[in-house]
Design a protein around this nucleic acid. Structure first.
Lengths: 193, 193
DNA sequence: ATGTTAAGGGAACAAACATTCCAAATAAAA
DNA sequence: TTTTATTTGGAATGTTTGTTCCCTTAACAT
């Protein structure tokens, strides 16, 4: 029987993801990916096909991980309004504690490639819809409970929240400053009250 | 006396800027830049130094042009509140009419390079401060005139507006949909009322 | 006209790139 | 232990990359 794989595919994927996140698709070379993952060239090509396929898999993994992280972080929060608040607070805490300022991989992928690559555009769009749906449900619940302002539709509010979140991913890279990000969250979420 | 330049430096800069905007710094090759500008390699290197310097000059030009465009588009607007509204309306109109979905060059540059390159990070930060300052003045004026809600400081509102604008640049690339962008602007600017 | 100076086109370069290939190493089954 | 299947490391490949160099061409001052 064959020799077993000597490495964990998902561990390698996470390391590649980190490099792609930091340098972008075009900015990261296979040499660097070999170094970052600790694998050999042949192992990478055998396991993931080519650079592009590896990138796609990293991006999909990032999307899944992010959403899983959200759920695990917020499941104990009872109130939808508090969930939204906690989510934004958690996001800016992450951005401020990240010394590499890699930014959001999904945002980076979108700005770098979505205009030229249909697959990336599709992943980006799906990710947006999933995030918007989360916000939509929280807002709808919150409005039903009377803790969220009913002046706007859940859809419109969800879109605004998603957009503010996306903005924060870029703004945090431009100026990773606590008071700036806190101001943004405070005002952006004030539409809920 | 020497032969005169046979091309307009700023015209070439605009063409290079467009390519960099579409493909990014790492995604655009010198071959493509030669083709896009219509110049020869030697003319590009003679005039702009190297690829990196050319990119920086494109980015600075983009920043200047954007701000000049804002001023010229909005100078006739009397009310600060209407200026802000018109500015966002103008922005989403631009995004929707752009078939290439190139996105905002400053945002693209920031997400691609600001984490690794100090010069780009500095330009991005300066651009943010300039934009924030515009919003700040409009909000302050608007509050003084009683047409903008005084519940939040001009600084906090300006930061939120800048952040929403940045978000729109990315969201428009993910989903260039009129109703989505209109929802975002409607809710994001509602904090002014 | 003519001399001077720089622009322009394109060939040439070395380095970096993604990818392929092969021989050696290795773990499990026989 | 031997066989078998597969991973693995590194050399090799052909392309693309950014950059330089040279020679021709052309404009201006004299």
């Amino acid at each position: 029987m064959p020799k077993q794989k000597q490495f964990d595919e998902y561990e390698a994927l996470d390391k590649a993801k980190s490099l792609f996140n930091k340098k972008g698709f075009n900015g990261a070379s296979m040499d660097e990916l070999v170094q970052a993952t600790g694998l050999s060239r042949s192992s990478i090509y055998d396991t993931f096909g080519d650079k592009y396929t590896l990138y796609i898999r990293c991006l999909q993994r990032y999307s899944q991980q992010s959403q899983a992280m959200i759920d695990s972080q917020l499941e104990k929060m009872a109130s939808p309004r508090k969930k939204i608040q906690a989510f934004f607070d958690y996001t800016i805490a992450c951005k401020l504690s990240d010394p590499d300022a890699m930014g959001c991989f999904m945002v980076n992928a979108t700005t770098e490639l979505a205009g030229e690559d249909t697959n990336i555009a599709k992943i980006s769009c799906t990710n947006m819809q999933e995030m918007e749906q989360r916000f939509f449900l929280w807002v709808k619940e919150g409005q039903a409970m009377g803790e969220v302002n009913p002046a706007y539709t859940p859809r419109a509010l969800a879109r605004h929240l998603y957009n503010s979140l996306t903005g924060i991913q870029v703004t945090a890279k431009t100026k990773p400053d606590k008071s700036v990000l806190k101001d943004i969250v405070k005002v952006a979420l004030s539409v809920l009250d």
